[in-house]
């Protein structure tokens, strides 16, 4: 754990080098930190507070305001299901339900084995393919509830291959 903390803090310090001299850089810095760790760890926030001279209260307040930021590590496979209007009209909700059922956890949470994380997003900009699901950057268009088990199985296999 202690090692973890040192590593997180070191990496964060590196990330912050270029943001230190810029105005209004908190959110950009947090984006980069989340990019590095998958979420924004408290240990990283401590470094942000110190380096950017921003009180923890503001960092935390900003983090919890924006949907994009995560305070805990998500699963290794992030399933983003679109519930924007176009996808909603075309049955996005039933796709969400199908994934929730398939994985046995509600959206916004991670499966117990830490493998899958489901999140609901609002419009991914490819409404033409509605309903849309994006899994770790791979897009699936015109998804039906029946596709959910297939997609999950596909990613289980991928992860197994990668030895996760």
């Amino acid at each position: 754990m202690a090692e973890d903390k040192t590593k997180i803090q070191e990496d964060t310090r590196k990330i912050l080098v270029k943001w230190k001299t810029k105005r209004g850089s908190l959110i950009m810095a947090l984006h980069e930190i989340q990019g590095a760790f998958g979420y924004v760890p408290w240990d990283a926030m401590e470094v942000v507070a110190e380096e950017l001279k921003i009180p923890m209260a503001q960092i935390y307040s900003v983090l919890t305001f924006y949907n994009y930021f995560k305070l805990t590590a998500p699963g290794k496979v992030v399933i983003s299901i679109c519930d924007g209007t176009a996808c909603h009209i075309k049955g996005g909700q039933s796709v969400i339900e199908a994934f929730e059922k398939e994985l046995g956890v509600p959206a916004g949470t991670t499966t117990e084995d830490g493998l899958f994380y489901i999140q609901i997003v609002r419009c991914l900009g490819c409404c033409g393919l509605a309903p849309v699901v994006v899994v770790n950057g791979k897009t699936y268009g015109r998804v039906t509830p029946l596709d959910a088990p297939k997609i999950v199985a596909e990613w289980r296999e991928t992860m197994a291959k990668e030895g996760v």
């Binding site: 408290w42 009180p55 923890m56 209260a57 503001q58 960092i59 935390y60 307040s61 919890t64 305001f65």
Partner: peptide, 19 residues
């Protein structure tokens, strides 16, 4: 002092110290 801040948003907004 920055002890208190607003956390979350919308109907879940509340006053609290960080974390």
């Amino acid at each position: 002092v920055w002890a208190l801040s607003m956390l979350k948003r919308g109907i879940n907004t509340h006053i609290s110290p960080a974390a």
